[in-house]
């Protein structure tokens, strides 16, 4: 796209581009954009899409074992929604001139990332509640903010996705509430799920702003609208109240209301664990990727058959015309 531009023209374009961003104009697929903007978006959007798709696994793990038919139907619909989100996001990423096959290939090669939270196992039914409440809750904080992202197709995708996410969070919270008000065993199950998913949920917002490689440029281009730490704070503040209502305890001894800041202070995240989990060392990292690769490989003959059938049909049609 930029091949034939002189340095001077390129600089001019970039200035104009930044002016459009500053004026809150949306960038559309056919508009000129700096190559780095495009790359940055592909990275972020594909990471987002892969997270939706990989996230189907830990929750899918409980579809066949859901405790009631009503919960089963809700969970199945919820996991299906997440797959749908993946689909929108892949399509939105494709408007940047990259194919879904390429995106999936970089997931499988390990060069593209997905949210590290999905590398934790779902060990009890309460984990389904914890994921809906916390993981979808954290995702909403992020995605509400991303509704104002500068790239048009991404922004519109987020608007659509956010509508479904709040239903996801409600159903998760409702599972937790039911357990917390249930038998001693159920309450313990809920608390245990919260203990295991709380810190990984905070990690979903990424490194501290000061340590985030892509953050500054992403904010300038308004790909991101709020910083990792701002969003994390918002999430902590809202979760404290929600936990209080159902009388579960957030597993952080340093959690305390700070009058001066008007926010809750909270303890430091174990960044070593975060790094491990992001780089293939989470408890289920290898399993999640292997599962996705297996499904893709098992489906290869189906996709091939579909292509072969379509091309035979086209040939037959062409022959009929000729």
């Amino acid at each position: 796209m930029t091949d034939n531009l002189s340095d001077q023209q390129l600089e001019q374009r970039e200035t104009e581009f930044q002016q459009r961003i500053d004026a809150e104009e949306k960038i559309e697929p056919k508009d000129w954009m700096p190559e780095k903007y495009r790359q940055n978006l592909i990275r972020q959007m594909s990471q987002h899409a892969h997270s939706e798709v990989i996230g189907m696994q830990p929750e899918g793990n409980w579809i066949t074992r859901a405790p009631t038919l009503h919960r089963k139907a809700i969970l199945l619909a919820k996991v299906q929604d997440e797959g749908g989100h993946g689909l929108y996001l892949y399509s939105a990423a494709e408007t940047l001139g990259i194919s879904r096959e390429e995106l999936i290939a970089s997931l499988h090669s390990g060069s593209a990332k997905y949210a590290s939270i999905f590398n934790y196992p779902t060990l009890s039914w309460a984990d389904i509640g914890a994921i809906g409440w916390l993981v979808d809750g954290a995702a909403i904080c992020n995605q509400v903010s991303l509704q104002r992202t500068s790239y048009g197709p991404y922004s519109r995708g987020m608007v659509r996705i956010c509508k479904e996410e709040s239903f996801h969070q409600r159903q998760g919270y409702h599972i937790m509430m039911t357990l917390a008000r249930g038998s001693a065993e159920q309450k313990e199950m809920a608390q245990d799920a919260l203990n295991r998913f709380w810190w990984p949920s905070l990690m979903m917002f990424g490194p501290h702003d000061a340590d985030s490689v892509h953050s500054a440029q992403s904010m300038k281009w308004k790909i991101k609208r709020q910083s990792n730490d701002e969003l994390r704070q918002k999430f902590v503040d809202q979760s404290v109240k929600q936990a209080e209502v159902i009388e579960l305890e957030l597993p952080d001894p340093d959690l305390k209301w700070n009058e001066e800041r008007g926010h809750y202070d909270f303890g430091e995240i174990d960044w070593e664990e975060f790094k491990r989990s992001m780089t293939g060392g989470g408890p289920c990292s290898r399993q999640r990727l292997a599962h996705n690769i297996q499904a893709h490989d098992d489906g290869a003959w189906v996709r091939e058959a579909m292509r072969a059938y379509e091309s035979k049909k086209r040939e037959a049609k062409d022959q009929a015309v000729a």
């Binding site: 798709v53 189907m56 066949t64 599962h291 499904a295």
Partner: peptide, 18 residues
């Protein structure tokens, strides 16, 4: 429902869940 996350491609995965 056992097909969830195991479909041959994403659209078909969703259709089977449906």
């Amino acid at each position: 429902s056992e097909w969830c996350s195991r479909g041959p491609f994403l659209e078909e995965d969703l259709a089977l869940s449906n």
